[in-house]
Computed example of a mutant assay.
Amino acid sequence: MDITWHGHSTFHVTVGETSLLIDPFFDNPKTSVEPADLDTPDYVLLTHGHADHIADAAHFSDATLVAVPELVSYAKDEFGFEDAVGGMGMNMGGTVECGDAFVTMVRADHTNGIMTDYNASAGMPAGYVISTTKPTQVADEASETFYHAGDTSLMSEMRDVIGPFLEPDVAALPAGDHFTMGPWQAAVAADWLDVEYAIPMHYDTFPPIEIDPENFSKELDAAGAKAEPVILEGDETFVYPVDF
């Protein structure tokens, strides 16, 4: 599984022959990539409707869209998407097969209004667990699993559901504070999730969320988390499993 961070919350994930682009927003200081530089992914996953997560979605409207039904409807009208997974999007707790990947939608604690003339709710905000096998109650040690938490605060669902039952190996966690978790809460989330690797995201894009990402590493130690911090540069790829 290849996990590429394009700054903010924008990730390009490759599972087998399938590519998934999460929250396309390239107007951020961590990336030198323009949307036109990328091949159209197979799937576009949107966590919620805020502009810093959907601003560049229209450039990838030939992809299949994964989002809650309310956001699917908006994206079809505004961005020209024709195909949505299942025809109508998906919702919390559901798992859909996306090529070589399985995508499970989980809750995120955040807001989700579309702050334009549209002036409407985009449904519930979400996070995604992307895995190489379909989640079941029987643990699959061979599965490779990436959790993109979306914009969220610390929530007990990470400890009680996502960690023990969806078993992510790698988690991308917002750490910029102000609008989401800050470093200490993100570190507690990594501990609760019991992940091997934790990637901070959603920071340094705007003045209110500027942080020293090394503080995330320190907070992981303070939380007693087993997770190894992965501080990515913009447009850098992390490959899991790690080949030592």
Rank of each mutant, 00 (worst) to 15 (best):
E144G: 02
T145C: 09
W184K: 12
T145Q: 02
E167I: 02
P183F: 00
M181R: 07
M124Q: 12
E157G: 09
L173K: 05
Y118T: 06
G127K: 10
S121W: 11
G123R: 04
F146K: 04
K134M: 04
G123H: 10
P125C: 10
G182F: 08
V129L: 11
Q137G: 15
A186H: 02
D169C: 06
A120I: 04
A189P: 14
G127T: 10
T152R: 13
A171S: 15
P164G: 03
F179E: 07
V129H: 09
E157L: 07
S156W: 04
W192Q: 15
A122C: 14
T132H: 02
Y147C: 05
M124N: 13
D169P: 01
G123P: 07
S121E: 08
A189E: 07
L154M: 13
A142W: 05
G123T: 07
S153L: 11
T132C: 06
F146Y: 14
I130W: 01
T136M: 12
V161R: 11
A120Q: 14
A189V: 12
I162P: 09
R159L: 10
E141D: 14
D194A: 15
W184E: 08
M181F: 08
Y147Q: 03
H148P: 01
P168Q: 05
G123A: 11
T136L: 11
V161H: 12
L166E: 00
E141T: 11
I162L: 08
T132M: 02
V138P: 00
P168E: 03
G182Q: 08
F179C: 05
E144H: 15
A187N: 01
N119I: 00
D169H: 14
T136A: 07
P174F: 05
